[in-house]
Design a protein around this nucleic acid. Structure first.
Lengths: 205, 205
DNA sequence: GTCTATAGACTGATAGAC
DNA sequence: GTCTATCAGTCTATAGAC
């Protein structure tokens, strides 16, 4: 397991970082399953096999842990799937991206639960989720605009683009929720069905 | 206000019922804003100006109160909007129905938060929400099938119908969430935009 | 029908031993 | 870096007075 050269001097430092990542992973599952208010530090600590005070030591507070969890989630979803893709191809990839969530139910539970909970302005993650959605809409709008510029689809006004990317986002969120509630739901087929029709509609004007 | 004939004998009974309805209404707001785990009986009782023990007396337990809230929400949304409409007309009404939610933010918050929270099988409302979604999908599928039978749209297989109504539901849920996160969102325009395109796609095969 | 009082468990957080 | 011990606060629920 240990690197032969550096394990003795930096061992403790390494284990600290790894422990931190492990704690974040477990917190993701618990927050995803019980929400923020319903997921206690003690529950998370128990599943990790550490004391609940350790969590405070690492993250300062419960809200600090939540922030770390959200940043990790952001990092995974961004780096994960959609780099090096742009324009219409970006949208064509979305069914595949959603289908990949089926292997990580906890992540999708976290996202769905936090987005709903954080719609209340008093929730600790409210600002984070708001910024996250805005950024996502801007990204999607950029790719659709790019498709327009490349003549892959017919021209669209800015308000039209705004509505289109909102609908795409809504379909992804809504179908994800339906899959959580009923795993029989064919995620890929539903998203694919919508995207294909949307692209045809964008092209045919 | 009181019925002249019976008010004296049944007065206390009446106030009990009215109080119960008032408590349910306040609980809807609190659960909608803080979720189930985050919305305490004390907070609800405080906003109602009664003791928290009163809530237990009325509803037996916190979960009993949640059940009462969900049933009331179900009753309102069902009776409210879409009776006496069927087939394609049912879908054409949806943008208007969603737009009407803008006057009752609390109800939409409740629905969104509970649906997400209850995706966890351990949540008290899990079964209720599952049945609610199934029933809704069946209703939508029935109206789409009716449109097919009336030759308002081209024939669709059963799996196709299933996917179509899932996408419609997803759009409604997803756009609702976006409006909660950003009240600038044009609910009506987004839903209307999707429904119109969907109907055109259903017709043109 | 609503109240006070209280039980008993759980919460997030702090201090200090090792 | 992780632990135990403990804090004050909050939770749901019960019992009984009025």
């Amino acid at each position: 397991m240990p690197d032969s050269a550096q394990s003795k001097k930096r061992g403790p430092y390494r284990t600290g970082i790894r422990r931190r990542e492990q704690l974040i992973g477990i917190a993701m599952d618990v927050f995803g399953e019980h929400g923020y208010a319903g997921g206690s530090l003690r529950t998370i600590a128990e599943q990790a096999g550490v004391n609940h005070a350790t969590l405070i030591q690492h993250f300062g507070s419960k809200e600090g842990l939540l922030t770390a969890v959200l940043e990790e989630w952001d990092r995974r979803t961004v780096e994960n799937s959609l780099a090096h893709v742009s324009g219409l191809e970006y949208f064509r990839r979305l069914p595949e991206v959603m289908a990949s969530h089926q292997d990580q139910r906890g992540l999708l539970e976290l996202f769905t639960t936090m987005a709903a909970e954080a719609s209340s302005p008093t929730h600790p993650a409210h600002g984070f989720i708001q910024r996250r959605y805005t950024r996502n809409l801007v990204t999607l709008a950029g790719h659709l605009q790019q498709a327009v510029d490349a003549n892959d689809v017919a021209p669209l006004t800015q308000p039209q683009i705004d509505i289109e990317v909102r609908i795409v986002t809504a379909v992804l969120d809504g179908i994800g929720l339906q899959w959580l509630l009923d795993p029989e739901t064919d995620l890929r087929a539903a998203v694919s069905s919508y995207i294909e029709r949307a692209i045809i509609a964008w092209q045919g004007r």
